[in-house]
Write a protein that binds this DNA or RNA. Structure first.
Length: 122
DNA sequence: AAGGTGACTGGCG
DNA sequence: TCGCCAGCCACCT
């Protein structure tokens, strides 16, 4: 009516700022249980933007060391760890997953049918 | 404010 | 099967 747009703009000192796409990615990834994996595409799907898989990877790339997000549980749709432009973090990712009993075959693929996690139904 | 970038994907040759 | 391409998105200059 008199207010065409009701922006949810957090005050500078707001206790709960509006979560950005990044924050929503992190919040979702925190739900993935130990020993399971999820794909970039699935994260995007559950965030309401099925085509934003790329942006999910972008978000994980922005994580700072010391975060509490289990980023290593996110792999690609082929069940493989993405090595492109990542230095040694990709090797670390594989090590962390194997430590959680996730198995990779000789071609570096994990069996999604076996390790993929799906969020509980609403 | 428009264009560039990238831890993605699915389709096609 | 494998590699290449264009499409798609959120962020950053």
């Amino acid at each position: 009516m008199h207010q065409p747009k009701r922006e949810i703009e957090p005050a500078a000192n707001a206790a709960q700022p509006v979560p950005s796409f990044y924050e929503r990615v992190y919040a979702f990834v925190r739900l993935v249980p130990r020993g399971s994996v999820i794909t970039y595409g699935n994260v995007a799907l559950y965030l309401g933007s099925p085509m934003a898989a790329r942006a999910v990877g972008y978000a994980l790339n922005a994580l700072q060391p010391g975060n509490d997000v289990p980023w290593w549980r996110v792999i690609n749709a082929q069940g493989a760890i993405v090595y492109k432009n990542r230095g040694t973090s990709a090797d670390l990712q594989r090590a962390l997953l194997e430590r959680e009993a996730v198995v990779f075959d000789s071609e570096g693929h994990a069996d999604l049918g076996r390790f993929r996690w799906w969020p509980p139904e609403v």
